[in-house]
Design a protein around this nucleic acid. Structure first.
Length: 824
RNA sequence: GCCCGGGUGGCGGAAUUGGCAGACGCGGAGGACUCAAAAUCCUCUGACCGAAAGGUCGUGCGGGUUCAAGUCCCGCCCCGGGCACCA
């Protein structure tokens, strides 16, 4: 054991021991209470960078802390190893994605071990392993059987750079691809979908049952976007403006049926199947031109445009009848009406909707108010509550009442029905790429679409492929892969060449971790029931919508299909979203090229100092600038602890035995307070203040050992033991080494220390004496001082007497024993 | 535009319930040790006035509630993030 703190001498040794001794392996029949800690499935882009370090340090702290608290902690790690970067690299360099990916996994694993993060490495899961792909495909087929998978032609977001389709969520607000930055185009293509919308209501309702940051819950709810309303038909008008009964009415969805008397026109999506039918001959040229102009534009682009509305719509010449007024109204086309939401057609009520108001102004439509605005209202459309006006049988009703009455009327007349709409859309999961999990489907000319039989899983990726600079998937030209036999008729057939979105892989990995050896099923329901839901999930807020939504959907669907336990409704009971690290004002990431590598710091100051710096710099949920990190301060602190705790320390020269003094008792109480404080701070993720607590306590001990009386050996030993124990989750190597030398054994297998409640209170406290709310004096008082005594003491204070100047106080507020406020 | 966060010393931050604003760290100053430096240890370090004792001001801005407000209420400003024509 060296005299000076030398992280290089101890860290590698302990990392190897935790690995060799399986300290953090846990079996499914472990007798301790189960606790599942999980950091989000990392994409292996190479060695860890500071963002990883922050994430995995927090997870590791919790794993070690819960273990000391007596739990059997499941701490698995795996790799989200499919995905575009590896394939793009293959296109540029010619190296097979598997080679790069597996090298990156090794590098990332080594980094994680070097920061002292501990896992049950027996349970490693990798998306591209055939043993994992097999079950990803198996689940696909299970969903396929259950009707949760379908294939459809859909207008999709095509990224020319990635040569693939993107989910709406993967297109940024400015219409570019989140990965490549290319401008996304619209194509019509056959694609595979997961029917996540079947679960929209459950996904919404069950948000109430999880302990997640409110911010994330709000984002999820907004994404699901439930709205209640009524769907009803607007009859198509004949030349005289009368409702035709020989054609289907035009269906619209509204959340404001109460305003229906104010419908003065209707707008349909340019993709609406009835555009041709509603367009009159004299308008056809304009309508077709408009449709062409809209067709090439991405949906994002269409929806984010803010231009003048006269350019964004066109009149069809067709008319429909407002069933409430019996009047015929014109039908328009507008780019902002989407075929994918509601019915693809809207009723327009300019009096109560600002966009409709603007559109009416631009196109010269009538405006009729149907809700009475307040007298001082000076806006255009009025969206607030008020009495219905110009609305026939609804007149005089408030909005809520009128909504119900209008819906009742529509239902009674057989014209419409109450309905719930969701913004959430089905999950487009197919990608036209090589480096992903193949979709296990075979196309047969005579039998059509056929699922690959389960005993033929997994459909593996061929290795002998060439990556084309166009980005086109090599699967589409690989005969060996393409050629298949129809499972029904044994005739020649063709294999599906699309692979799955990598979000599919990350939607069930947390279940596989519970039973990674299973080759009969993706996991057994019992293993899942034992560990799920994850007690603490940790990751970046950038996954607040997509990954979490998809994983929730998978969990619910798997439970409903009997693959997972039926009672498992949510995968992640508690979620913690940690902040990102910025460098030079922008998010630190490989794509931005502003990574800071941990290695030089690990070499110089060590893993414990780096971990401490990550924990100390800011509250864990907040973003942090790399410039604010204080590695040196943390390294210095660790050296101070070492100097204090290492046997033979020069700081112990004045130590004594025998009777204890008041100073010793103070240290003893401070020790118990430390334990109570750190326990509480760990529990509520206040890691930055916990580190401050270590430092404060260490400063206290330094003053104690250097005081004239010197420290009492027993008191100091107990204080140091407690410090090492509570610090062990944060600075595991140093604490393990010092503990082993001082006490023997593993500090991380010690039970968590308990504070004696009796020692958490001091005999005396400082009472603050205020005059008119300003601090004027402080006195040491017994902790059990009563109110009368506190008041008497305060009124006897020189400062108070001076302020009173012989008079009587107007009022005295006493909060014994902490504070007295004398009002004069 | 809407919805969330947030604004506290030179800097990162602390203050869990309305009760001593600025814990802890960084940075800075001084001292001890040393031939000297580094390292280490100790002390000080919000601003202003003052020789000092002490006082005044102070948590984005303006009001308010309260004996007492960083904390609660009302109205603004600024910064960060999310969603952006969802019918």
């Amino acid at each position: 054991m060296s005299e000076r703190y030398d992280p290089q001498a101890i860290e590698a040794r302990w990392q190897q021991r935790w690995l060799d001794e399986g300290t953090y392996q846990v079996d499914n029949d472990d007798p301790r209470p189960p606790f599942y800690v999980l950091s989000m499935y990392p994409y292996p882009s190479g060695p860890a960078h500071m963002g990883h370090v922050r994430n995995y340090t927090m997870g590791d702290l919790l794993v070690r802390y819960r273990t000391m608290r007596g739990d059997g902690v499941l701490s698995p790690i795996g790799f989200d190893s499919f995905g575009l970067p590896a394939e793009n690299a293959a296109i540029t360099t010619g190296t097979h994605p598997r080679i790069n990916t597996e090298a990156n996994i090794e590098a990332l694993s080594a980094s994680l071990r070097r920061i002292g993060a501990v896992y049950d490495w027996r349970r490693v899961v990798r998306s591209h392993d055939p043993s994992y792909m097999r079950w990803t495909q198996w689940i696909f087929l299970k969903f396929y059987e259950a009707g949760l998978v379908y294939r459809d032609t859909a207008p999709v977001n095509w990224c020319p750079g990635c040569q693939t389709v993107l989910a709406n969520e993967q297109v940024l607000g400015d219409g570019t691809c989140e990965r490549s930055g290319d401008l996304v185009e619209r194509h019509d293509m056959e694609q595979w979908f997961y029917r996540i919308t079947d679960y929209a209501q459950q996904l919404l309702d069950d948000m109430d049952t999880v302990d997640w940051p409110e911010k994330v819950k709000v984002m999820q709810r907004h994404w699901i976007g439930r709205s209640e309303g009524t769907e009803f038909g607007l009859a198509v008008a004949d030349d005289d403006g009368n409702a035709r009964t020989d054609v289907e009415p035009l269906k619209v969805f509204t959340t404001r049926p109460d305003t229906s008397f104010g419908i003065t026109f209707a707008v349909i999506s340019p993709e609406h199947p009835r555009v041709d039918e509603l367009t009159t001959e004299d308008r056809r040229a304009d309508v077709d031109a408009f449709r062409t102009s809209v067709a090439g534009r991405s949906e994002i682009d269409r929806m984010s445009t803010t231009g003048p509305l006269d350019k964004r719509g066109v009149v069809t010449g067709g008319r429909v009848v407002n069933p409430f007024t019996g009047r015929a109204i014109p039908v328009f086309l507008a780019d902002y009406v989407l075929m994918t939401y509601g019915t693809g057609a809207i009723m327009a009520v300019p009096g109560q909707d600002q966009r409709d108001w603007d559109f009416a102004k631009a196109h010269g439509c009538d405006i009729v108010r149907t809700v009475q605005p307040p007298d001082d209202f000076d806006g255009d459309a009025y969206l607030g509550d008020g009495q219905a006006i110009n609305s026939g049988f609804l007149d005089g009703m408030a909005v809520g009442e009128a909504k119900a009455a209008a819906s009742d009327w529509l239902e009674a007349e057989g014209l419409g029905v109450r309905k719930v709409n969701y913004r959430l859309r089905d999950w487009l999961l197919s990608r036209q790429r090589y480096w992903g999990c193949p979709i296990p489907i075979i196309y047969c000319d005579s039998c059509g679409e056929q699922p690959v039989p389960v005993d033929q899983l997994p459909v593996e990726l061929p290795d002998d492929v060439e990556f084309m600079p166009t980005g086109r998937s090599p699967l589409t030209t690989h005969d060996g892969f393409l050629t298949a036999t129809c499972p029904s008729c044994d005739g020649p057939a063709r294999r599906e060449t699309d692979t799955m979105d990598t979000f599919v892989d990350s939607s069930w990995y947390f279940l596989r971790f519970t039973d990674p050896w299973n080759d009969e099923a993706p996991f057994s329901p019992d293993s899942a029931a034992r560990w799920l839901p994850v007690d603490q999930y940790i990751g970046g807020v950038e996954h607040a919508i997509l990954h979490l939504m998809y994983a929730r959907f998978f969990t619910k669907a798997l439970a409903d299909l009997g693959v997972a336990p039926p009672g498992l409704r949510e995968p992640f009971q508690r979620l913690f979203t940690q902040g990102m690290i910025r460098l030079g004002g922008t998010k630190m990431s490989k794509s931005k090229g502003n990574l800071v590598a941990p290695e030089p710091i690990l070499d110089r100051q060590g893993a414990d100092a780096l971990r401490l710096a990550h924990l100390q710099v800011k509250p864990p949920q907040e973003d942090v600038d790399w410039e604010d990190f204080g590695i040196d301060g943390c390294a210095k602190f660790l050296a101070r602890v070492w100097r204090l705790a290492a046997p033979g320390s020069d700081l112990w020269t004045g130590a004594r035995a025998g009777d204890t003094t008041g100073a010793d008792a103070d240290i003893d109480r401070a020790t118990h307070r430390l334990v109570a404080r750190i326990t509480d701070e760990y529990d509520r993720w206040s890691y930055n203040t916990a580190i401050a607590g270590f430092m404060e306590f260490t400063n206290t001990l330094y003053r104690y050992v250097q005081a004239d009386d010197g420290p009492h050996t027993d008191t100091l030993d107990a204080a140091i033991d407690a410090l090492l124990q509570v610090m062990a989750p944060a600075a595991p190597h140093l604490c393990a080494e010092l503990w082993e030398t001082r006490r023997g054994g593993h500090v991380h297998l010690e039970p968590w220390p308990e504070a004696d409640p009796a020692k958490l209170v001091d005999d005396t406290v400082t009472m603050v004496i205020q005059v008119n709310g300003k601090v004027r004096d402080r006195v040491e008082v017994p902790a059990d001082l009563d109110e009368a005594a506190a008041e008497a003491l305060a009124l006897a204070s020189d400062k108070v007497l001076a302020a009173l100047a012989g008079g009587a106080p107007r009022r005295v507020i006493v909060r014994a024993p902490k504070l007295v406020n004398v009002v004069v």
